[in-house]
Design a protein around this nucleic acid. Structure first.
Lengths: 202, 202
DNA sequence: AAAATAAACTAGACAGTCCAGTCTAATATA
DNA sequence: TATATTAGACTGGACTGTCTAGTTTATTTT
């Protein structure tokens, strides 16, 4: 008869939190298990007891983060005013993809995509792929309600999402010193939404 | 009387080549100076004599690579047929940004942008910034020749370039297993060029 | 053109540091 | 009572950067 005492779930989460923070800040190779244990306020042995080795912990921490990043709620029911709807969505999207958290996970997943394709796949599915699918549905809706004339909704979704990235996203990606102002960002988004609607109007 | 013998330029280049290859393949932390020396067919001491330490070698190798990646020649003189001009440019652009070399440098510059902002800045200026400026000029040309109606040529350039990235670029970035076919890419590019022209036509 | 010289280069050893992962022995807890 | 947890020692290995001692090579002087 095996008596099994369950491992402390709180500690597990502490470890995952410390791990994702360090991994995203310093990268996989530059982060030591010892520091993760210390930051998680847990002994090194506990880390190894919860996660067999560094690779497993890395995968688990990315997976954990991807799940928590799923929360990007956009209520796009009101399609009657596409300008406002799309602009608001564009703003929310920009804020999301330029957030510290999202950028950090994005960065490490891309970087480790050759060594850990399964990890980067997690992010791809949870992020870009999921979002593209949702926006594709939105585009289909705009077409069916005769608000816009969108023959290929997937292409339109890709065009829209990529377009909205703009200059700010690049500057954050490359950590440049100068950053464009949020006014300029807004102007770019407004311009782009207007352009998008013009390009897909009847 | 100072006798100065210049260091071997060929060896310097061998070191830089080996360094950029390993750094882009394995990352900064995971690449050892010893292996760089070995791959460059040079002694470790020679590496240290040419480049004081690992950081310096890293910077130098990225700088060297950025210079060689400058070569993205697009002859965009013939503006009379914007569909063809923009499509050809879009194709060349896609091929360039999805090339192994460009992707690899992009990846490491983004990843090391916090630890080495000067390095990522090199790439940003040599790549995205330079290209955006050139395409902005193209957009101005299209406007002045009354081929398209582009009020804000910089926005148009950003929209165009970002839009063209599309799905393939994401799949390469995340190293996904499935890849869209080059036919699909062509279709996307054609669609996007048509959409772009529609959105900016008089 | 030959000899002299100073610097570049090589190979390898080396010190010092760090890290992944294991082991142990003691403690806490369900 | 069995298992989770802890702190810390420990192994084996890798890495950076230095040092040494000997070799090659470009340049300057004779």
């Amino acid at each position: 008869m095996v008596k099994k005492r369950s491992k402390n779930e709180a500690k597990r989460q502490q470890i995952l939190n410390a791990a994702i923070q360090l991994f995203t800040e310093q990268g996989f190779a530059a982060t030591s298990m010892e520091l993760i244990a210390k930051n998680a306020d847990v002994s090194k042995q506990t880390v190894y007891s919860h996660f067999g080795n560094k690779d497993e912990l890395f995968s688990a921490s990315i997976e954990n983060k991807c799940e928590s990043l799923h929360i990007f709620d956009f209520s796009l029911n009101d399609l009657t005013d596409p300008h406002t709807t799309l602009f608001n969505f564009a703003k929310a999207f920009t804020e999301f993809i330029t957030s510290k958290e999202a950028c950090a996970v994005h960065k490490i997943c891309v970087f480790e995509s050759t060594a850990y394709p399964q990890v980067s796949d997690l992010f791809y599915r949870a992020g870009p792929l999921r979002l593209t699918k949702e926006v594709t549905l939105l585009m289909e809706g705009l077409h069916q309600q005769k608000i816009l004339c969108i023959e290929n909704p997937k292409h339109a979704a890709l065009q829209f999402l990529h377009m909205m990235k703009g200059e700010l996203w690049m500057q954050i990606e490359f950590n440049t010193k100068e950053r464009i102002s949020s006014d300029e960002v807004d102007e770019y988004l407004r311009d782009s939404v207007a352009f998008f609607i013009r390009g897909y109007s009847f």
